[in-house]
Design a protein around this nucleic acid. Structure first.
Lengths: 220, 220
DNA sequence: GTATGCGTCTGTGTATACATTAATGGATGC
DNA sequence: GCATCCATTAATGTATACACAGACGCATAC
């Protein structure tokens, strides 16, 4: 379909299969098997797997096959710690940058969408808007490497969220924080943007980790 | 020479060539050329290059060859921002962990080595000990993903340091900060460990960026 | 019954061959 | 002289072939 290379196709296909739970965490898959499944030779599959390995989504072990990396509660905690720091930094940098209201429209829209989704009790739409908010926030921080790292980390969280989204308490308070962060960025209030978002993420982490611990979650 | 695979050999060879300046930033190299130079076929070189690309050390562009990623002053600033946050987080976590003096020996040793190197006016030895200090600090933070990210970022800094090490002011004050961080970790003083290291890194960033700007450094 | 060693067999690591595609240069038209 | 188009060509993307090495099972010894 397009000018896509097979490696790219393999990458997105594998990612999709992982996120959809079609390839379950902890399971092993031979290069040959995946190649056949994707209708290509081993070479592009192997190269895609190498890249996914660099992002921590899979592990390649000789003669064991490609293992879909399991994500433990400890891993989640580690990842949230990183997200907390880096997103807060992005929020601070965004506040420094002096964005206009127009620049911040996407953020505002995401917040509005989250409200709407909560009213409609549509958790999936909420998660989607929440994603957009955080992605845009990081983008406004204007640090390409940071954006990359955050997006890789978020990929890992995404797998767990399929599980947690429906057992966690409704994210009702969440948007109040988002609004404060947005306002702080608009006002150029660097430390307020940073600290508010930091506390927001920290709370999310504690909630999630408690949730995972409570549910005997030892690996996904 | 051991049970090393050619991909691993290619990885370390390429890394070494990059750090040694043998492959200069911004230069392009064909897969075939590198393969010949390393005495292997294109396959392992390509796979190694893909991994190095994931770490941001090279970029692979179709028909242009493998480009050694240039690092601009802006990049350095971005990277230091990330290092600042993540290392500070590690320092805080290390302080939380309640390490004994024995556990902290490696840190103490690195500080002592820096002092000795400064007395002997041996900048390379200082840089080496400084590296050890920061690496151990991050390790004590006990977050495997964080360690990985930081080590990738530090790789990028390493290239610039070859340039900056000898034009920057002598890092005389630096060790005072290191000592405070070590003491804070030993005391379990989380916020002191965090804030001191944060300020330390922030200062290093500002100094370095000013230095690079002053020297018309637009890409390495 | 357990441990040890060997042979087999499968999957990977690597080389190589080939198809594809984009950059390059020259020729042509204006 | 400049732009445009086409042919050429060289480097990549992918498939395939093959050697090697590690896992597994089986037999044998104790």
């Amino acid at each position: 379909m397009g000018a896509m290379t097979n490696v790219e196709r393999a990458m997105s296909a594998l990612r999709q299969m992982i996120f959809a739970g079609e390839l379950t965490p902890g399971s092993d898959h031979l290069e040959t098997e995946l190649a056949e499944r994707l209708g290509m030779s081993r070479t592009p599959v192997r190269e895609a797997a190498l890249m996914l390995q660099a992002q921590g989504l899979v592990e390649m072990r000789p003669r064991r096959g490609i293992r879909i990396s399991p994500v433990s509660a400890q891993d989640m905690s580690d990842i949230y710690d990183i997200l907390t720091e880096l997103e807060s930094l992005a929020a601070a940098r965004a506040a420094e940058a002096g964005y206009s209201d127009t620049d911040l429209e996407t953020l505002a829209k995401a917040i509005a969408d989250m409200d709407a989704a909560l009213d409609a009790d549509d958790l999936r739409a909420w998660a989607d808007a929440d994603d957009r908010f955080h992605r845009e926030l990081v983008r406004l921080g204007r640090n390409a490497r940071l954006s990359m790292i955050v997006s890789v980390m978020r990929d890992q969280v995404r797998r767990a969220r399929a599980t947690t989204l429906f057992i966690r308490p409704k994210p009702a308070k969440s948007n109040a924080d988002h609004r404060i962060v947005l306002q702080a960025i608009a006002d150029g209030d660097v430390s307020r943007a940073h600290d508010t978002h930091h506390a927001h993420r920290r709370a999310a982490r504690d909630m999630l980790v408690a949730l995972l611990d409570k549910h005997q979650f030892h690996g996904l």
